[in-house]
């Protein structure tokens, strides 16, 4: 990023920094390798070896089971839809709301911000929200997984503060050029906010992808279950309390299946990240003011 002369002390730092981060990366990634390895291992091996990175006997049984019906593929489709539509809705709502709230002269701004902050700590809970969703006729609709959680107040506040940190000169300059308010937001603010938009695209997308609880409450039709709820179904059976006797009716899924489930649920959202990464690195902001 910043090419610059390096002092000897800086070079020593570089070596240690690279090595240190490599160790951290290994430390964070290795357990996931174990999960991947475990998903291909036999039950006997999982019982015998506490931790391994390469299974001795590779079996695809767990994946065969997951992909044995089109249920899984269908639920992935549902999740992709909810993730994409939800992220678009959430970003649209959050960005449009955050921008006015970042404008200090706006009448009523402080009141609105206080009201938003209030909802971060106080909430009505599950049953009242369910009643609203129900009375809007959203039960069994995928929009029930999106609309009730469309704006995360935390993210809203952070986006607002990013907007607020943009230099005021930008807007002043835009006004001189004859930009309307809408023009400023659309042509100046948004293009300059790429790193912020990329960040919150990721945050919202991950949230929608991982959410299963709303589906559990609002979606009865199992053909509309997202993949996380489906996987929950597969995995939770193994975690039932031992007092719960329903393991008798359905064999607990094998350990390898639990791991395979994590792999297939995580990989799609994991590969999404590198595509967003390149937008993080664009230090365009101040440069554009000068131009």
């Amino acid at each position: 990023m910043h090419k610059m002369h390096n002092t000897p002390a800086g070079r020593v730092f570089d070596v240690f920094n690279h090595l240190f981060l490599l160790l951290i990366a290994i430390g964070t990634f290795i357990p996931f390798v174990y999960v991947i390895a475990g998903s291909f291992a036999t039950e006997a091996e999982l019982a015998r070896r506490a931790f391994f990175l390469i299974p001795e006997n590779i079996t695809l049984d767990a994946y065969k089971y997951i992909f044995s019906t089109n249920t899984f593929i269908r639920s992935i489709g549902v999740s992709i839809f909810v993730t994409i539509a939800g992220t678009i809705v959430s970003l649209a709502l959050s960005l449009t709301m955050a921008y006015p709230l970042s404008r200090k002269g706006l009448t009523g701004r402080t009141l609105l911000l206080n009201l938003v902050i209030f909802t971060m700590v106080f909430n009505g809970g599950m049953i009242p929200t369910y009643m609203i969703v129900k009375s809007l006729g959203l039960l069994d609709s995928l929009w029930a997984l999106i609309l009730p959680v469309a704006i995360n107040p935390f993210y809203l506040i952070i986006i607002k503060s990013f907007f607020q940190n943009m230099p005021d000169e930008l807007e002043e300059a835009a006004k001189i050029d004859g930009c309307s308010e809408i023009g400023i937001f659309w042509r100046i603010i948004l293009p300059l906010s790429k790193p912020v938009i990329a960040t919150f695209t990721l945050f919202y997308a991950v949230f929608y992808w991982n959410d299963f609880f709303n589906a559990l409450l609002y979606i009865s039709d199992s053909s509309k279950w997202p993949v996380q709820l489906l996987l929950q179904q597969l995995v939770m059976i193994a975690n039932v309390d031992f007092g719960n006797m329903d393991t008798l009716l359905s064999e607990p899924p094998e350990e390898s299946l639990k791991m395979a489930v994590i792999v297939v649920a995580t990989i799609p959202i994991l590969v999404f990240y590198p595509f967003l990464q390149k937008h993080f690195a664009k230090g365009v902001l101040l440069g554009s003011v000068k131009g």
């Binding site: 649209a92 709502l93 959050s94 449009t96 709301m97 921008y99 006015p100 709230l101 404008r103 002269g105 706006l106 009448t107 609105l112 009201l115 938003v116 909802t119 106080f122 909430n123 009505g124 809970g125 049953i127 009242p128 929200t129 009643m131 609203i132 609309l147 009730p148 959680v149 469309a150 704006i151 107040p153 809203l156 309307s180 308010e181 809408i182 937001f185």
Partner: peptide, 28 residues
């Protein structure tokens, strides 16, 4: 600032509908 209020509107509706309308739950 009318344009800014138009931008705010969807967000305000969201907070009113999904955050403040269920707020009676805290009285439980």
């Amino acid at each position: 600032d009318r344009f800014l209020y138009v931008l705010l509107l969807p967000g305000i509706i969201y907070f009113a509908l999904f955050k403040y309308l269920p707020m009676w739950g805290t009285l439980m």
